[in-house]
Design a protein around this nucleic acid. Structure first.
Length: 266
DNA sequence: ATGTCGGGTGTTACCCGA
């Protein structure tokens, strides 16, 4: 089984590219983040035509997560238990943001996650991000307590660079989110509750990234960040035979600012 | 091989988020 995750930065502007990616890499299950569309706008037919079923949640032009699978999609869940809602605070949208979708594909529980961006260290969105991650940790720890043998993958854009090597120059980030101690602690808490980064052993740094800002020639200068992760429960991690960050997908016209991350399971 | 891109709208010029 081949599983991938990709922050596509709008599925409508990149559906054909995503379809080509699925076929080129022979991917079975793909988790998407930042689809940036409502459910009725998702170009589902493009993927149905090449054999994939789609589960998606999107409420507006922001956020949006999906799971595409050609090996079945069962027990789709929108949001996780206890997931905090930013919208409840600003009153714009009574629904929770579209940042988490779970589905069981080929016996593996896959969660496509788009962790909130903290924006700046002083912004209330950073607190929201930390609360969101704390709630996630509590919930996923409960899943493992209930079934230690469950194959679960928490995949997506975590908006955190957990190690100094996960950014090109730490001095640039001294007053930035993504690398702050509370964010790193929140990420580590998920890892410590039993979900290992299954990609890093196959794609060690330094200089290995999943995201490059569109501005400042970040990609050609190889100035990126590793912020997209596949975290696997013990039963999931034990089946991983390889992993790859497909840097090629960041190249050329019409690229997302993130590269897809691919994991092979036996 | 590239000095941003998506989305949106009070739409062809700006706004916001990342």
């Amino acid at each position: 089984m081949r599983l991938a995750t990709w922050n596509v930065n709008s599925i409508r502007s990149r559906a054909d590219r995503v379809a080509a990616f699925l076929q080129r890499h022979d991917v079975d299950v793909l988790a998407l983040q930042e689809t940036k569309c409502r459910d009725d706008q998702f170009p589902e037919m493009v993927f149905n035509a090449i054999g994939y079923e789609v589960a998606h949640v999107g409420h507006s032009q922001w956020n949006g997560v999906a799971v595409l699978s050609r090996i079945g999609i069962e027990d789709v869940e929108i949001g996780f238990d206890g997931m905090p809602s930013w919208s409840a605070k600003d009153g714009v949208d009574p629904a929770a943001e579209a940042r988490a979708l779970g589905a069981t594909c080929g016996g593996v529980r896959v969660w496509s996650l788009y962790v909130p961006n903290g924006r700046t260290l002083a912004d209330p969105h950073l607190q929201y991000k930390l609360e969101w991650l704390a709630a996630l940790r509590t919930t996923v720890a409960g899943w493992l307590e209930a079934d230690p043998q469950a194959p679960i993958a928490l995949v997506g854009d975590w908006n955190i660079a957990p190690e100094d090597d996960d950014v090109w120059d730490m001095s640039v980030f001294t007053h930035s989110t993504h690398v702050s101690p509370p964010e790193r602690a929140a990420f580590r808490a998920v890892v410590d509750s039993g979900f290992a980064d299954v990609v890093r052993p196959y794609a060690p740094g330094p200089g290995v990234y999943t995201y490059w800002d569109y501005t400042q020639l970040r990609f050609p200068r190889r100035e990126g960040m590793r912020i997209d992760f596949v975290l696997g429960s013990p039963a999931f991690a034990g089946r991983v035979t390889g992993a790859l960050i497909d840097r090629e997908e960041r190249k050329g016209k019409g690229a997302s600012d993130h590269a897809p991350v691919i994991v092979d399971l036996e």
